[in-house]
Design a protein around this nucleic acid. Structure first.
Lengths: 255, 255
DNA sequence: CGTGATTTTGAAATAATTCAAGAAGCGTGG
DNA sequence: CCACGCTTCTTGAATTATTTCAAAATCACG
């Protein structure tokens, strides 16, 4: 059995996907009881994927939208140059599908990194869901903003800082599924995946990981990430421990 | 009078800001008549800013949200290193303020690049507006997704491609305010601003602009952008003219 | 155990930054 | 209307960051 099959499959905390009995689901979180029933009426089915299987492909006019119930998925784009750009790793509870133009063909592909299961909703009903259940739109706007802020935060960093930022984020997200986690987690991605995520070559990722290992910050080897120095990692990743100074006057209107 | 004062101030097409009679306003676009009246009831006032004035500052707990009515603004962050990262240039109709955690202090600052006017809404009412007027949430999710996709698109590019992408985008946005535009527009930003937007040094922006000029793609000098070769620019910016090939099989569930 | 995928390392080339200094444009005050 | 000072733009040389190419070592899995 492949390492990706036996990889720990993080699962949403509550029961079978009723998209609704699962409060941790991105689409359900903060939705009131009545809204959950509505949501459930929109759901069309559940599906399973095995590792490496695609859920949808860039260029397709896809008719459905998803939330991930268990497993890891990744979303990526094939660029005009032929290179692969990984946009995002999805964990249980995360949306898969959203793009600014819902009517356009998908601008990216989604592939299972491990065996997965998902909840399916008809794409045609999404706007209806957003209109009828305000929490759905709010969640969607909030999660999209979070992804946006993630990209903003990583964009002006160098190789070491990016790697630190990405690995810190992945570690933190996984830890939220298994609070017993101390310093070690299993990750389904390779060094090449990390490179395609960060816009670095696999070779440079390897050398940067070596640096981080030598500096005793972390180790990443064969799908196992170990964090040795949490504080150093956070600092490298650019999480400010001090509030930033204000250097300009603010308009009189601003308060 | 400063060049930034006499800079062309793009204004929303329709009348005084009734946030409502202005259909092109991000918050109003696609909102039905009844929603517009509701929106108007939420609006608290209009304000003006002069060039270089700040609307809000990173770290503040800001009580209002805005849509820009006329002029240019920029949103930026001060990083722990002290460097400035410009996130976004706002033109009339654009939202200013959104972040994933509405209750947190602002994660960025907003400054007027030219004289500006804006519509103001109490931040406390934003979630209420989103819940009562579904179009507001949908617009917010859509625009945030657009910003996200913009960051995704620019993130794995080199200096020349980034500059091409940014300038093409700015050109296109301005053109939408003045359809008579052919190949020349005025931009309020400096080469240093472009550098802080793209994560490049001002010196490298200068050298890259020289390359683009020598290759007869475009000229950017003293706030004036001239596009000489639109096709070359689009290609450099990474807009694929051909659909991308599909290389993987898709799950049986995907249609 | 053998094969293909992944990781590691070295050497050379390219991309971008840093430091430094000079040139050109812009706006204010005389 | 000109002169001065400040900001922005330009260029060169040296340094650092990252990529490319290539090959060997290790690992996973059948």
């Amino acid at each position: 059995m492949s390492i990706l099959r036996k990889h720990p499959a993080y699962v949403l905390p509550v029961g079978d996907c009723q998209l609704c009995s699962i409060r941790e689901h991105a689409m359900c979180r903060a939705t009131p009881e009545q809204g959950l029933q509505q949501l459930e009426s929109f759901r069309s089915k559940q599906i399973g994927l095995t590792s490496k299987q695609h859920l949808y492909q860039q260029g397709q006019r896809h008719k459905q939208v998803y939330t991930l119930y268990s497993g890891w998925m990744m979303q990526y784009k094939t660029l005009p140059s032929g290179k692969r750009q990984i946009l995002r790793y999805a964990l249980p509870g995360d949306f898969l599908f959203f793009q600014s133009d819902l009517a356009a063909p998908m601008q990216h592909s989604a592939m299972a990194l491990t065996d997965c299961s998902l909840c399916v909703f008809p794409r045609d009903h999404l706007l209806e869901m957003m209109a009828q259940i305000p929490q759905v739109s709010i969640q969607l706007a909030t999660f999209t903003a979070r992804d946006y802020e993630y990209q903003i935060d990583i964009s002006h960093k160098n190789a070491q800082e990016r790697l630190a930022y990405l690995l810190y984020d992945l570690f933190t997200r996984i830890k939220s599924y298994d609070p017993a986690t101390t310093d070690t987690v299993q990750l389904p991605m390779t060094q090449e995946d990390l490179g395609d995520t960060l816009g670095l070559t696999q070779v440079h990722v390897n050398r940067t990981l070596r640096q981080l290992r030598q500096e005793k910050v972390l180790e990443f080897l064969h799908h196992r990430l170990i964090i040795h120095n949490f504080e150093a990692l956070k600092t490298l990743a650019g999480y400010a421990t001090q509030p930033l100074p204000h250097s300009y006057k603010v308009s009189a209107f601003s308060l």
